[in-house]
Structures are given as structure tokens and as C-alpha cells.
Amino acid sequence: MLEVRGIDVFYGDVQVIWDLSFSVSEGEVVALIGANGAGKSTTLKTISGILSPRKGTITFNGEDILKIKPYRLIEMGIAHVPEGRRLFVEMTVEENLDMGSLRGTARKERQRNKEMVYSIFPRLKERSRQLAGTLSGGEQQMLAIGRGLMSMPRLIMFDEPSLGLAPILVKEIFAVIENIRKEGVTVLIVEQNVKQTLSVADRAYVLETGKMVLEGTGKELMDNEHVKTAFLGV
């Protein structure tokens, strides 16, 4: 479904990603894991068109998405739930959800999808008229995920969804991610919370300073010596 082939990404003159290749197939949960500065978020930003690679290709269902304007990607079925949630804090919860469904069928199905999001996160329904900026961190993360789902994506990309959340909320967020996969949506997730992530991921790639160092199924990596010492602290 998503094919990333040999991309090099720079911030100005500084290269942060070297010859990175990976793929995500339909229906999978794939994780990119790695320490701070490994280039995980950069990779997602490149896929969603906020950054562009100097070299390499990215295709989605066989179509070259580097040639497509970033604001059109959502119509193709790619949703990005960015790091730090990036909500519209001066809009209400409901308005934020509306912003997730501006185009195409998502717009027509807005009401139904909203009900669906509210049924996943009943808390959001209670607070639908509240300004997004006044929500707690966990609620904001729920809203960011909900906003991503409003576009009826085929691939949803999560950037550090557990960042800054209490352990109990982290569990809840991961449970939601499992549910999203059950609905048939493909998931690409970037995380520093390696243990939780590997337990939900079908496959994972390990990044270190912008280069791919390991790949395998979630279980394989969980048992890998390198991963154990570097991330799991065992």
C-alpha cells in the first residue's frame, strides 16, 4: 500500500535521513521505533508532504505521492495525526472534528463519522462544545485521533500518540489503535514507547540517526538483543 524507496531528507544542509526504505501493506500495523532524533517524525512529515526528499520515491497504491500537493493527500486516504496533537485550540471539539472532514465523501458522511468518533471516545461527546484548548492532554490526543478518523482514511499515521500521557491513558490509546486496525484501516505508528508499540505492531522498523538498522515482526524485535538493550532496558 505504502512504499518508501531510498529517501534522503535534509533540514537545510543537514541530512537527517539516509537512504530509507520500507513498506506498509494493507491492513497492517507497522511501527517505526527509535530514539529521539532518529528521524521517525521526519519520515512521517515527508510522507504527508510537509517536507520533501532530495532523493527517492514514495508511492501510495502505486501512485507517486511526491508529485501530489500535500492538501490533496487526505482525499487519497492518508491521514496524519501529528506529534503534539496540533489541534485548533480556539475551536470547539466539534469544529475540530468538522475540520477533519472537509473533502469528498468524508464531508457527506460527516454526521455518521462523528457519531462513530463519539462512540469510540464518549468523553469527546460530553465536551463537544468546549474549546479544544481547554481539554486535558489525554482528551486532546483523543480529539486528534478522532479528527484523523473523520477523513475516513485508509492509512492513518500516528506520531507519538502516547507522548506526555499517564500510563492508563497510554493503554487506552493503544486499545483504540487496535480497534482502528480491526475496522480495516492500515496504521503506521511512530513511537518511543517501544514495549507497548511492539506488542500491537505486526511489523516494525528500527531507526538510528536516520538509518534503518533492523526490521522484523513485533515479536522478533521484542526478543532481539539489540532492541532489548537499547530500548527496553533489560
Partner: peptide, 21 residues
């Protein structure tokens, strides 16, 4: 008006939600 406010609040998020900023 909503698009304008969305761009003010977060241009990248607005773009990734399908607004031609």
C-alpha cells in the same frame, strides 16, 4: 472563515487536513 482560523491556529495541520493553505 473556518479555513482562515484553521490556518492561523496551525498551518501544517490545516494543510494535512486538506486545506489548500
Amino acid at each position: 472563515g473556518y479555513y482562515f482560523v484553521a490556518i492561523r491556529e496551525d498551518q501544517d495541520a490545516a494543510e494535512s487536513l486538506g486545506i489548500n493553505t
